[in-house]
Design a binder for these strands. Sequence first.
DNA 1: GAGCTCATGT
Length: 669
Amino acid sequence: MACRRSFQSFRRFHYYFSSAFSQVSSSLLCCGFSHTYGYMFHAYSSLAQQLLDEISQPNFPDFHNVIRRHSDERSFTQVLQVYASMLSHGFLPNGSTLNFIIKACTALPALSFGWAVHAQAVLLGFEAATFIQNGIIVMYARFREIATARAVFDKLANKDVVSWTSIMSGYVQNGYPFDALQIFRTMRIDSTVIPDFIALVSALKACMDVGDLEQGSSVHVLVVKFGVEDEPDLLTTLIAMYAKCGQVHVARYVFDQVTSPEPLLWNAMISGYAKNGNAEEAVDLFKEMVARNVQPDSITLRSAILACAQVGCLEAAKWIWGSANANGFESDMFVSTAVIDMFAKCGSMALAHSVFESIPKKDVVVWSAIIMGYGLHGQVKEAIELFHGMILSNIQPNDVTYVGLLSACKHSGLVEEGRRYFYSMKEHAIEPRHQHYACLVDLLGRSGHLEEAFMLIREMPMAPKVTVWGALLNACRIYSNVELGKYAAEQVFAIEPTNAGHYVQLSNIYACFGMWKDVARIRVLMKERGAKKPMGFSSIEINGKLQSFYAGDKSHSRSMEIYAMLDKLEAKLKKFGFLPHIDLVLHDVGHEEKEVSLRNHSERIAIAYGLISTPPGTTLRIIKNLRACVNCHSATKLISKFEQREIVVRDANRFHHFKHGLCSCGDYW
DNA sequence: GAGCTCATGT
């Protein structure tokens, strides 16, 4: 109810106002009010103010209506200004006015004002008004005052579904999904409130954040039980939940039930694929979305771009970039930066660079992306030039810029420079993080500075992770250092006991010295601990489509031709005096067998398939999930020479550009 | 009156 009070009673309100709530924070409240409205009233002039000024004696409905109109227009600062003005005219709010004020405080967010409004609501007798208290719960959740929100919720006598949903989503938004689920359970067990679809959305989001498939599925059951499975927004969260829990097929099943999915639903599904590593499906679904004339937004594009960067398919990358431009995202910084990264990871620094050039105001992230890209391709000179260009443009490098710069040095073996950049980070007030140490340890180790690398590890202010010890182990393998290698391996095994790659590294060190007993011991250890080597595979891009091969793969329909080509390649390699490095094969088998298994590595099969599927002179683009092996690397160099092909290989860590018998990595990787 | 997709670089 609107109340017209005398000036005296208004003063009395202020008296209660500061004395009754002094335990909360009297100074805050006083500031929040007498200050805020007084200050605001004099400092600002708004349209609403002018409107009010035109009325010589504005009454309560005048103020209320102006507040409502500003609220509808989302001009929340003005809502508070007019409210302050209303109070100074001696009017007090009714429940409806208060809701507009609470909403404005929440949206801005206006903390001190919000506290004061809460106090005012209590004084005006709205303590048991569920529709007011619900808004206050949301407001405190927004202020990250989740304990206060909970206190308001607990005190509320008549909790409706909105009260429950408000506190539940408050917990979710503040990063406490377990508490949110606890609230949901309490609501189901201790109250008669029936959850509606918004309550279920919040519960699903909590399950998603926890990654709890079992609870998520049980909420899905409720969705069906309460017959809200046709709510588009609920489906979005349901799909995201299943995708987050790794059940991308279930997510797709839900998606397929919808006849004309909304853009948000496409986004949830595409990003679900991208996050689960089903990158090809993500790109295909994006293409389908565009084919069905659904307008992609910046989130769709970012998800598709991320997926494409993962698979590394250049044709798909060009297509996505084209559709980003066609839909008006060519000047979206977030999209452009992601595109730079995508082109770099799809093997085209030329395209990455042209996008980079097209960005008028480059921020630190844009610069970092391009520097990282050149590093990935072993073009350290360009990376360093860009780094200095960035500083000349008055853009301060950050820790990620240095990751890019150091990894560029690492990929090219620039020890001096890498060391210098690492220690110069302090000049830019950047504390080296774990990744920076990992880069420098790798760089020092690969260049034979094993002692210095080890010393650096000992000086690290944080616990070294597997990347650091793994880099040292790798260096020990290269330089055949048994003692240090054993030590590094122990650290690595303790962190990742089931990663077979580490065992192979140590085993190779032993094999190098003919310590076959130790090799056998490692093999037993691997078996005991259930360590498995990930299956190596290589993919090749033919006409924009990726075709994948495993080592010794004979499943392809053109397998006969592929193996005939492999025989031809083998003969030519022999003619060019190619000698396989057989030491690196873990298994203790005869020489001939080793040679056979080497020539059947997935990379070689992919190349053979590329040679029989494309016209002479076409660049072959290969993507593999493991690091390039020494044999394949040497063989690919020779193949690029006698087949006169440029071969671009993306391995697990970086790019190799093979041309005229040489590789861009300079045999350093 | 309450809710959701993603969030550029390692």
